[in-house]
Design a binder for these strands. Structure first.
Lengths: 229, 229
DNA sequence: TTTTGTGAACTAGTTCACAGCT
DNA sequence: AGCTGTGAACTAGTTCACAAAA
């Protein structure tokens, strides 16, 4: 990084400004971290962007550019030290701490997510489930997560230090539930219910819409059928 | 559509060329269709792109452009007829037929997806579950979907006319399972396991990576914490 | 020599703005 | 008058290609 850098006024000159990092970039950081896990497991100490790109079907220039937003982690002529870069990425992604998650909706999907092993892996901890049904409240998921009354969301969220909420309720309840989440002071939400939700700008809402995904696949199939004559 | 259109050689001039429609566009078509469901339910007969955009927080020009890829569905001075456009969108998305889906992996997530009501809604039908565990094979999900041995995937897929596969197995099995899916002649796959998979070009693979989604939220929280002083 | 970090070039996607149809 | 359909302008994202560092 040249110090005589005239353009693109960076707010904090050292690194970690993250002024306006695209979501596509942050998603890729997560992918890179997973690649590094694999490499570390294979006993690799150092990796070039080129080699990383080839091994995991990525683009070398993009890897370098994504990483360069946050600092100079590479060594010219060598590449990146796997352990070092992994540590940096975990720190950038905020994974260097336990992140407590609440799942709203103790139906099929909510309970499945609560027991999903992939979450625990990288520092996420399912701290609570919430539902409205009286005969679910007080019980636990298979893995031992307690189901609370959704009316207690704010109280339990504060007590348990919950930072992320997952919406797994039927579509008509999604927007009101989001309201409760926002009122509880939670700033990051992963939504599994179909349809767009409206959230304040200081709350990060990410949606996984299974219907849209499936219909997109259906479109692909319909096109294929139409084209082949 | 002017007939004196010189550039951008369309393969089939009438409509429905869909030469190279972006995935972002097809995802939005699915969103539009859902909006139209709502409007139809509310008894609305006709809607302008402007009104549609305002009501559902979309962009009017984008709606028009997305739709114009596939034909001239609007009426100048009026807008779009809700019932008509809905029918067109269902046809474009290939939803004017039952689409049979198989879920591979009868664990928590697979079983939850099998019973997910959102799927049945728009013509999708969960026709079969697959697993390797002998004590699961032969049983049924809560909603009555039979669990087959994954070794029978090809046979059952042919018999049941399965067009879409959903991967809900632990990460290490995802790539080999995809191999079986491809060998069974299924051309559209929705993958829930973390990590990138390699598929032939004639197979459409769509991945929902929960880890990436959560880590992206974590990044957002980490940035917020770092900036507020 | 090898490989990073990065301006420049390119490609994709979105929004504007308006001619032309109803 | 009202609204679509669409080139043109703009914005975002990706890839190239190379100077500078180790």
């Amino acid at each position: 990084m040249k110090t005589s850098n005239k353009a693109t006024a960076k707010t904090s000159p050292g690194k970690q400004s993250a002024d306006q990092v695209s979501e596509l970039t942050t998603n890729r950081l997560s992918v890179y971290l997973r690649c590094l896990h694999v490499l570390e497991g294979a006993g690799v100490n150092t990796i070039s962007s080129q080699a990383l790109a080839e091994q995991f079907h990525l683009n070398a220039a993009q890897i370098r550019k994504d990483l360069a937003y946050f600092g100079e982690f590479g060594v010219r002529g060598v590449g990146y030290y796997v352990r070092d870069l992994k540590r940096h990425l975990r720190q950038i992604l905020g994974l260097d701490r336990r992140l407590r998650v609440a799942i709203i909706g103790a139906g099929n999907l909510g309970l499945a997510l609560a027991d999903y092993p992939g979450f625990k892996q990288e520092g996420f901890e399912i701290a609570a489930l919430f539902d409205t049904l009286k005969d679910k409240v007080g019980h636990q998921s298979r893995s031992g997560v307690t189901i609370h009354d959704i009316a207690d969301l704010k109280k339990v969220a504060k007590r348990e230090g919950i930072k992320i909420a997952v919406i797994a309720v039927p579509a008509p309840f999604a927007q009101p539930v989001l309201g409760l989440i926002v009122a509880a002071g939670i700033k990051a939400v992963l939504n599994f219910s179909p349809g767009a939700l409206q959230a304040p700008t200081d709350v990060k809402l990410k949606s996984v819409d299974l219907t849209v995904s499936l219909e997109s696949l259906s479109f692909f199939l319909a096109q294929g059928d139409a084209e082949e004559k």
